[in-house]
């Protein structure tokens, strides 16, 4: 019984070490390249599992792309070269950070545009209020005699109810 538990425990231990090894198969002679590999794998999006980057994804295609990045790093390719290679094949979709170009201007500059628009609206509203205040202060509100009587009557009824 004890032996069984022991073997089970060892088995569990062994299995977990195997699954860890699967993540770490990319060997680099240069620690700088390994760091770049991590960066690239985190900023490229997996075309198959669309909400994962290729570092996280277990899809076959993500594995292939990781292998390709490793090969290209070993062949001394620069980061922009590797990213261009991916975009050529899988389109802008693989980029988690979209490039700045006419199609993405609205995406990049839209928020600033909306901010300016909001500021403009606020200024416009404030100005309008100030103007309307000034105009009422200048003219005053003059009640006609009938209106004044109506107002008195209303105020009186309210007083009467309260007392």
């Amino acid at each position: 019984m004890l032996m069984n538990k022991l073997t089970l425990g060892l088995l569990v231990l062994f299995c977990s070490s195997v699954s860890l090894a699967a993540i770490d198969v990319y060997q680099f002679d240069d620690p700088e390249k390994e760091k770049r590999f991590q960066e690239l794998a985190y900023e490229l999006r997996c075309p198959k599992c669309q909400n994962q980057n290729i570092a996280d994804s277990n899809a076959e295609i993500a594995k292939d792309l990781r292998t390709k990045i490793q090969q290209m790093l070993v062949a001394d390719k620069t980061n922009p070269e590797i990213i261009d290679y991916m975009v050529e094949r899988y389109g802008d979709f693989v980029l988690y950070e979209p490039r700045v170009k006419p199609q993405t201007y609205l995406l990049w500059y839209g928020p600033a545009l909306f901010l300016l628009l909001g500021l403009a609206i606020i200024l416009w509203v404030i100005r309008g209020r100030r103007q309307s205040k000034e105009s009422t202060a200048g003219n005053g509100v003059v009640l006609t005699t009938t209106e004044a009587k109506q107002l008195d009557a209303l105020l009186n009824t309210k007083k009467g109810k309260q007392s």
Partner: peptide, 12 residues
Amino acid sequence: AGMLGLDLGVYG
């Protein structure tokens, strides 16, 4: 090896 697939942009 799936390398033509990679060049072609195949993802499944």
